[in-house]
């Protein structure tokens, strides 16, 4: 069975990364910005696992496991912050939350 080349996964990961970056830059809703962050983290994990496969070692897989754990804790803390922002400002529009702007 011929294997899928390394470049396929890298191209897919690059597309995912740029789409996630686009989501972060354009969306006003904080939860959708978090979805863009998740896309970027997934692109990074895909790269790590791909290099691990084509290198024959386990480092990339271990890094991606730690990356998944960090993504889980990041999502939990970020959503807690978003809920707190909503309780205080009654909106999660990141363009309107400008109390700290002078």
């Amino acid at each position: 069975m011929p294997e899928i080349g390394l470049n396929h996964f890298l191209v897919l990961s690059a597309i995912l990364f740029s789409l996630g970056l686009f989501g972060i830059m354009t969306r006003r809703n904080a939860v959708v910005v978090l979805m863009g962050v998740e896309l970027i983290l997934n692109a990074a994990n895909l790269n790590l696992v791909a290099f691990s496969k084509f290198n024959g070692t386990m480092s990339g897989v271990m890094f991606s496991m730690f990356g998944i754990i960090l993504a889980a804790s990041e999502a939990a803390v970020a959503l807690a912050i978003v809920l707190n922002i909503y309780a205080r400002f009654k909106t999660v529009d990141i363009g309107e939350i400008d109390t700290m702007r002078e």
Binding site: A30, V31, L34, M35, E38, N42, N45, V49, V61, S64, M65, I68, I69, A71, A72, A75, A76, L79, V82, L83, Y86, V92
Partner: peptide
């Protein structure tokens, strides 16, 4: 990693994000 991806992302983070959408 594939199974962990489904368990953590689909079972955990996506549900958290949906809760975030619903609550805000």
């Amino acid at each position: 990693v594939a199974v962990t991806q489904i368990v953590v992302y689909v079972g955990g983070i996506l549900i958290l994000l949906l809760f975030g959408v619903m609550l805000t």
